[in-house]
Nucleic acid binder design. Structure first.
Length: 305
DNA sequence: CGATTTTGACCAGCGC
DNA sequence: GCGCTGGTCAAAATCG
Protein backbone atom coordinates (compact mmCIF):
# COMPACT_ATOMS: atom_id res chain seq x y z
CA UNK A 1 0.00 0.00 0.00
CA UNK A 2 2.06 2.81 1.17
CA UNK A 3 4.94 3.67 -1.01
CA UNK A 4 7.06 2.81 1.91
CA UNK A 5 6.76 -0.68 0.85
CA UNK A 6 9.73 -1.97 -0.99
CA UNK A 7 10.63 -5.40 -1.91
CA UNK A 8 14.03 -6.85 -1.66
CA UNK A 9 15.29 -9.47 -3.87
CA UNK A 10 18.57 -11.07 -3.69
CA UNK A 11 20.62 -12.87 -6.12
CA UNK A 12 23.16 -15.09 -4.59
CA UNK A 13 25.37 -16.68 -7.11
CA UNK A 14 27.75 -17.67 -4.41
CA UNK A 15 29.24 -21.05 -4.59
CA UNK A 16 28.89 -20.90 -8.24
CA UNK A 17 32.52 -20.78 -8.87
CA UNK A 18 33.47 -22.31 -5.69
CA UNK A 19 35.39 -25.42 -5.63
CA UNK A 20 34.62 -27.61 -2.79
CA UNK A 21 36.50 -30.65 -3.56
CA UNK A 22 35.18 -33.40 -5.59
CA UNK A 23 31.63 -32.59 -6.20
CA UNK A 24 30.32 -29.79 -8.22
CA UNK A 25 29.28 -27.04 -5.92
CA UNK A 26 25.65 -26.32 -5.72
CA UNK A 27 24.81 -22.89 -6.74
CA UNK A 28 22.09 -20.59 -6.05
CA UNK A 29 21.46 -18.89 -9.20
CA UNK A 30 18.86 -16.74 -10.60
CA UNK A 31 15.83 -15.81 -8.69
CA UNK A 32 12.27 -15.25 -9.20
CA UNK A 33 11.19 -11.80 -8.35
CA UNK A 34 7.62 -12.39 -9.06
CA UNK A 35 7.13 -15.22 -6.74
CA UNK A 36 10.00 -15.85 -4.43
CA UNK A 37 13.13 -14.33 -3.27
CA UNK A 38 11.43 -11.44 -1.80
CA UNK A 39 13.22 -10.65 1.33
CA UNK A 40 10.50 -8.34 2.20
CA UNK A 41 8.11 -11.13 2.42
CA UNK A 42 10.47 -12.94 4.62
CA UNK A 43 10.88 -10.01 6.76
CA UNK A 44 7.29 -9.80 7.57
CA UNK A 45 6.33 -7.91 4.59
CA UNK A 46 7.52 -4.65 5.81
CA UNK A 47 11.03 -3.45 5.75
CA UNK A 48 12.71 -0.23 5.49
CA UNK A 49 14.68 -0.33 2.37
CA UNK A 50 17.43 1.93 3.43
CA UNK A 51 17.97 0.10 6.61
CA UNK A 52 18.23 -3.19 4.96
CA UNK A 53 20.45 -1.89 2.28
CA UNK A 54 22.64 -0.43 4.91
CA UNK A 55 22.67 -3.62 6.78
CA UNK A 56 24.25 -5.22 3.83
CA UNK A 57 26.56 -2.46 3.14
CA UNK A 58 24.89 -1.39 0.00
CA UNK A 59 24.16 2.01 -1.07
CA UNK A 60 20.47 2.59 -0.86
CA UNK A 61 20.70 4.21 -4.17
CA UNK A 62 22.46 1.55 -6.08
CA UNK A 63 19.97 1.57 -8.77
CA UNK A 64 22.31 -0.14 -11.14
CA UNK A 65 22.00 -3.09 -9.00
CA UNK A 66 18.35 -3.10 -9.36
CA UNK A 67 18.47 -3.10 -13.02
CA UNK A 68 21.11 -5.68 -13.16
CA UNK A 69 18.70 -7.98 -11.60
CA UNK A 70 16.22 -7.51 -14.30
CA UNK A 71 18.67 -7.95 -17.02
CA UNK A 72 20.86 -10.62 -15.67
CA UNK A 73 18.69 -12.67 -13.54
CA UNK A 74 15.78 -12.17 -15.72
CA UNK A 75 12.86 -13.70 -14.02
CA UNK A 76 12.54 -16.27 -16.63
CA UNK A 77 8.94 -16.96 -16.81
CA UNK A 78 9.08 -16.32 -13.20
CA UNK A 79 5.45 -16.84 -12.90
CA UNK A 80 5.74 -20.32 -14.05
CA UNK A 81 8.15 -21.14 -11.38
CA UNK A 82 5.55 -20.82 -8.88
CA UNK A 83 2.77 -22.10 -10.91
CA UNK A 84 -0.40 -20.36 -9.97
CA UNK A 85 0.99 -18.17 -7.34
CA UNK A 86 2.72 -15.57 -9.27
CA UNK A 87 0.73 -16.01 -12.35
CA UNK A 88 -2.46 -15.31 -10.70
CA UNK A 89 -1.63 -12.96 -8.03
CA UNK A 90 1.65 -11.47 -8.78
CA UNK A 91 1.27 -10.28 -12.29
CA UNK A 92 3.75 -7.73 -13.34
CA UNK A 93 4.68 -6.27 -10.08
CA UNK A 94 5.38 -8.73 -7.43
CA UNK A 95 5.10 -6.60 -4.47
CA UNK A 96 2.20 -4.66 -5.60
CA UNK A 97 0.06 -7.63 -5.20
CA UNK A 98 1.49 -8.56 -1.94
CA UNK A 99 -1.16 -7.03 0.09
CA UNK A 100 1.17 -6.52 2.87
CA UNK A 101 -0.13 -5.58 6.16
CA UNK A 102 2.64 -3.77 7.77
CA UNK A 103 0.88 -3.81 11.04
CA UNK A 104 3.76 -5.62 12.55
CA UNK A 105 5.62 -8.79 12.48
CA UNK A 106 2.31 -10.45 12.58
CA UNK A 107 1.59 -8.88 9.31
CA UNK A 108 0.39 -11.20 6.72
CA UNK A 109 3.54 -11.96 4.96
CA UNK A 110 1.78 -14.72 3.30
CA UNK A 111 -0.34 -12.10 1.86
CA UNK A 112 0.32 -12.25 -1.78
CA UNK A 113 -0.32 -15.86 -1.69
CA UNK A 114 -3.11 -17.71 -0.27
CA UNK A 115 -3.65 -17.61 3.38
CA UNK A 116 -5.41 -14.73 4.80
CA UNK A 117 -6.60 -13.73 8.11
CA UNK A 118 -9.06 -16.36 9.01
CA UNK A 119 -11.97 -14.43 10.28
CA UNK A 120 -12.30 -15.33 13.86
CA UNK A 121 -15.80 -16.43 13.49
CA UNK A 122 -16.79 -17.91 16.74
CA UNK A 123 -14.38 -20.68 16.98
CA UNK A 124 -16.71 -22.26 19.44
CA UNK A 125 -19.85 -22.40 17.53
CA UNK A 126 -18.05 -24.40 14.98
CA UNK A 127 -21.21 -26.35 15.18
CA UNK A 128 -21.27 -28.25 12.01
CA UNK A 129 -17.59 -27.92 11.56
CA UNK A 130 -15.37 -30.44 13.06
CA UNK A 131 -12.50 -29.30 15.17
CA UNK A 132 -10.52 -30.01 12.08
CA UNK A 133 -11.52 -26.74 10.71
CA UNK A 134 -10.78 -24.93 13.89
CA UNK A 135 -7.43 -26.47 13.94
CA UNK A 136 -6.76 -25.36 10.47
CA UNK A 137 -7.80 -21.89 11.35
CA UNK A 138 -5.58 -21.70 14.30
CA UNK A 139 -2.72 -22.94 12.30
CA UNK A 140 -3.38 -20.45 9.66
CA UNK A 141 -3.37 -17.69 12.18
CA UNK A 142 -0.16 -18.89 13.57
CA UNK A 143 1.39 -19.28 10.23
CA UNK A 144 0.95 -15.73 9.28
CA UNK A 145 3.37 -14.66 11.89
CA UNK A 146 6.17 -16.67 10.54
CA UNK A 147 8.82 -15.03 8.45
CA UNK A 148 9.50 -16.66 5.18
CA UNK A 149 12.52 -17.02 3.13
CA UNK A 150 12.92 -18.61 -0.23
CA UNK A 151 15.89 -19.34 -2.35
CA UNK A 152 16.89 -21.42 -5.25
CA UNK A 153 19.53 -24.03 -5.27
CA UNK A 154 20.98 -26.09 -7.98
CA UNK A 155 20.68 -29.60 -6.85
CA UNK A 156 19.64 -32.95 -8.03
CA UNK A 157 18.17 -33.67 -4.70
CA UNK A 158 14.82 -32.22 -3.99
CA UNK A 159 14.92 -32.22 -0.30
CA UNK A 160 18.20 -30.73 0.71
CA UNK A 161 19.69 -31.73 3.97
CA UNK A 162 19.91 -28.73 6.19
CA UNK A 163 20.55 -30.21 9.55
CA UNK A 164 17.01 -30.30 10.74
CA UNK A 165 14.58 -33.10 10.60
CA UNK A 166 11.51 -32.69 8.53
CA UNK A 167 8.35 -34.58 8.02
CA UNK A 168 6.51 -34.33 4.83
CA UNK A 169 2.90 -33.53 5.30
CA UNK A 170 1.71 -32.82 1.87
CA UNK A 171 2.40 -32.61 -1.77
CA UNK A 172 0.61 -30.72 -4.45
CA UNK A 173 0.89 -30.46 -8.13
CA UNK A 174 2.08 -27.09 -9.20
CA UNK A 175 0.18 -25.37 -11.88
CA UNK A 176 2.05 -25.19 -15.12
CA UNK A 177 4.77 -27.35 -13.80
CA UNK A 178 5.37 -31.04 -14.09
CA UNK A 179 7.06 -30.98 -10.74
CA UNK A 180 5.09 -31.21 -7.56
CA UNK A 181 5.60 -29.08 -4.52
CA UNK A 182 6.28 -30.80 -1.26
CA UNK A 183 5.42 -29.50 2.15
CA UNK A 184 7.55 -30.29 5.14
CA UNK A 185 7.32 -29.52 8.79
CA UNK A 186 10.04 -29.59 11.35
CA UNK A 187 9.61 -32.70 13.42
CA UNK A 188 10.86 -31.13 16.58
CA UNK A 189 8.05 -30.63 18.98
CA UNK A 190 6.87 -27.12 19.42
CA UNK A 191 8.80 -26.06 16.40
CA UNK A 192 6.47 -24.74 13.79
CA UNK A 193 8.93 -24.19 11.03
CA UNK A 194 7.82 -25.39 7.66
CA UNK A 195 9.32 -25.50 4.29
CA UNK A 196 8.15 -26.03 0.79
CA UNK A 197 10.24 -27.61 -1.81
CA UNK A 198 9.67 -27.62 -5.48
CA UNK A 199 11.70 -27.98 -8.56
CA UNK A 200 11.82 -25.19 -11.00
CA UNK A 201 10.10 -26.14 -14.11
CA UNK A 202 12.16 -23.63 -16.00
CA UNK A 203 15.34 -25.14 -14.82
CA UNK A 204 14.78 -28.64 -13.52
CA UNK A 205 18.19 -28.60 -11.99
CA UNK A 206 17.09 -25.92 -9.63
CA UNK A 207 15.23 -26.54 -6.44
CA UNK A 208 13.21 -23.80 -4.87
CA UNK A 209 13.02 -24.03 -1.15
CA UNK A 210 10.90 -21.80 0.96
CA UNK A 211 11.35 -21.73 4.68
CA UNK A 212 8.71 -20.41 6.93
CA UNK A 213 9.29 -19.63 10.52
CA UNK A 214 12.23 -19.99 12.76
CA UNK A 215 13.52 -22.94 14.60
CA UNK A 216 13.28 -22.54 18.32
CA UNK A 217 15.75 -25.27 18.96
CA UNK A 218 19.24 -26.22 18.00
CA UNK A 219 19.98 -28.53 15.17
CA UNK A 220 19.30 -32.08 16.14
CA UNK A 221 22.56 -33.66 17.09
CA UNK A 222 21.32 -37.09 16.34
CA UNK A 223 21.18 -36.26 12.76
CA UNK A 224 22.26 -39.15 10.73
CA UNK A 225 24.83 -38.89 8.08
CA UNK A 226 27.31 -36.13 7.97
CA UNK A 227 24.89 -33.37 8.24
CA UNK A 228 25.52 -32.48 11.81
CA UNK A 229 29.20 -32.61 11.33
CA UNK A 230 29.21 -29.99 8.72
CA UNK A 231 27.52 -27.41 10.75
CA UNK A 232 29.80 -25.04 12.36
CA UNK A 233 30.05 -25.00 16.08
CA UNK A 234 28.46 -21.67 16.06
CA UNK A 235 25.43 -23.31 14.71
CA UNK A 236 25.31 -26.14 17.12
CA UNK A 237 25.88 -23.91 20.00
CA UNK A 238 22.76 -22.71 21.66
CA UNK A 239 22.44 -19.87 19.32
CA UNK A 240 19.82 -17.35 20.10
CA UNK A 241 17.42 -18.53 17.55
CA UNK A 242 14.82 -16.48 19.18
CA UNK A 243 16.59 -13.51 17.93
CA UNK A 244 15.46 -14.42 14.55
CA UNK A 245 18.04 -16.23 12.66
CA UNK A 246 17.17 -17.86 9.50
CA UNK A 247 19.25 -20.51 8.04
CA UNK A 248 20.14 -20.77 4.45
CA UNK A 249 20.68 -24.35 3.81
CA UNK A 250 22.14 -24.98 0.46
CA UNK A 251 23.60 -28.31 0.26
CA UNK A 252 24.59 -30.40 3.16
CA UNK A 253 27.97 -30.97 1.78
CA UNK A 254 28.99 -27.50 1.19
CA UNK A 255 27.76 -24.88 3.37
CA UNK A 256 25.34 -23.67 5.81
CA UNK A 257 24.59 -20.13 6.39
CA UNK A 258 22.64 -18.28 8.87
CA UNK A 259 21.05 -15.13 8.02
CA UNK A 260 21.39 -12.38 10.52
CA UNK A 261 18.58 -11.86 12.85
CA UNK A 262 17.10 -9.19 10.76
CA UNK A 263 14.48 -11.57 9.74
CA UNK A 264 12.29 -11.26 12.69
CA UNK A 265 12.08 -7.67 13.41
CA UNK A 266 12.40 -5.32 10.63
CA UNK A 267 12.79 -2.50 13.00
CA UNK A 268 16.08 -3.89 13.94
CA UNK A 269 17.44 -4.30 10.58
CA UNK A 270 19.18 -1.06 10.76
CA UNK A 271 20.90 -2.41 13.76
CA UNK A 272 23.03 -4.80 11.88
CA UNK A 273 25.21 -2.62 9.91
CA UNK A 274 28.53 -3.94 8.96
CA UNK A 275 28.37 -6.61 11.57
CA UNK A 276 26.26 -8.53 9.29
CA UNK A 277 29.22 -9.30 7.25
CA UNK A 278 31.20 -10.70 10.06
CA UNK A 279 28.19 -12.43 11.21
CA UNK A 280 27.73 -14.21 8.02
CA UNK A 281 31.31 -14.83 7.69
CA UNK A 282 31.42 -16.86 10.81
CA UNK A 283 28.75 -19.09 9.57
CA UNK A 284 30.43 -20.10 6.44
CA UNK A 285 32.32 -23.23 6.16
CA UNK A 286 34.59 -21.95 3.55
CA UNK A 287 37.26 -20.19 5.46
CA UNK A 288 39.17 -17.83 3.33
CA UNK A 289 36.86 -15.38 1.79
CA UNK A 290 33.87 -17.25 2.79
CA UNK A 291 30.80 -17.05 0.79
CA UNK A 292 30.14 -13.83 2.32
CA UNK A 293 31.99 -12.00 -0.29
CA UNK A 294 29.85 -13.62 -2.76
CA UNK A 295 26.65 -13.10 -1.11
CA UNK A 296 26.97 -9.57 -0.03
CA UNK A 297 28.28 -8.01 -3.14
CA UNK A 298 25.76 -9.87 -5.06
CA UNK A 299 23.01 -9.11 -2.76
CA UNK A 300 20.85 -7.17 -5.03
CA UNK A 301 18.10 -5.03 -3.95
CA UNK A 302 15.35 -4.04 -6.06
CA UNK A 303 12.67 -1.65 -5.64
CA UNK A 304 9.44 -2.38 -7.24
CA UNK A 305 7.50 0.45 -8.67
C1' DC B 1 6.30 -50.88 16.07
C1' DG B 2 7.19 -46.13 15.76
C1' DA B 3 8.34 -42.80 12.35
C1' DT B 4 7.70 -41.13 7.91
C1' DT B 5 5.58 -40.81 3.38
C1' DT B 6 1.74 -40.99 0.28
C1' DT B 7 -2.45 -39.32 -1.26
C1' DG B 8 -7.19 -37.93 -1.60
C1' DA B 9 -10.21 -34.82 0.71
C1' DC B 10 -11.12 -30.59 2.69
C1' DC B 11 -10.81 -25.63 3.46
C1' DA B 12 -9.93 -20.74 2.60
C1' DG B 13 -8.67 -16.93 -0.37
C1' DC B 14 -9.00 -14.78 -4.68
C1' DG B 15 -10.46 -13.53 -9.33
C1' DC B 16 -14.07 -13.43 -12.50
C1' DG C 1 -21.65 -17.37 -6.31
C1' DC C 2 -18.52 -20.35 -8.62
C1' DG C 3 -14.34 -22.29 -9.94
C1' DC C 4 -9.51 -22.46 -9.37
C1' DT C 5 -5.51 -22.89 -6.56
C1' DG C 6 -2.51 -23.28 -2.58
C1' DG C 7 -2.08 -25.22 1.83
C1' DT C 8 -3.23 -28.64 5.34
C1' DC C 9 -5.21 -32.72 7.36
C1' DA C 10 -5.36 -37.45 8.35
C1' DA C 11 -5.94 -42.27 7.22
C1' DA C 12 -3.49 -45.73 4.96
C1' DA C 13 0.72 -47.44 3.31
C1' DT C 14 5.51 -47.91 3.66
C1' DC C 15 9.94 -47.83 5.76
C1' DG C 16 13.70 -48.87 9.00
Amino acid sequence: MSNERRDFYYHTPFLEDRHLDAKPPPSIHGFDPSSYMSLTECLHGSVDYNSLAKAFGLSPSSSEVFSSIDENSKPVEARDLDGGNSTDQIPATPNSSVSFSSSEAGGDEDSGKTKKEPQPENPEDGGEYSNKKDKAKKKAEKRQKEPRFAFMTKSEVDHLEDGYRWRKYGQKAVKNSPYPRSYYRCTTQKCTVKKRVERSFQDPSTVITTYEGQHNHPIPTTLRGSASAMFSHSMLAPTPMSSGQISFPHHQEYSFVQFPAAATSHQNIGAYPQNVNQHLHQQYQVPDYGLLQDIVPSMFFRQEP
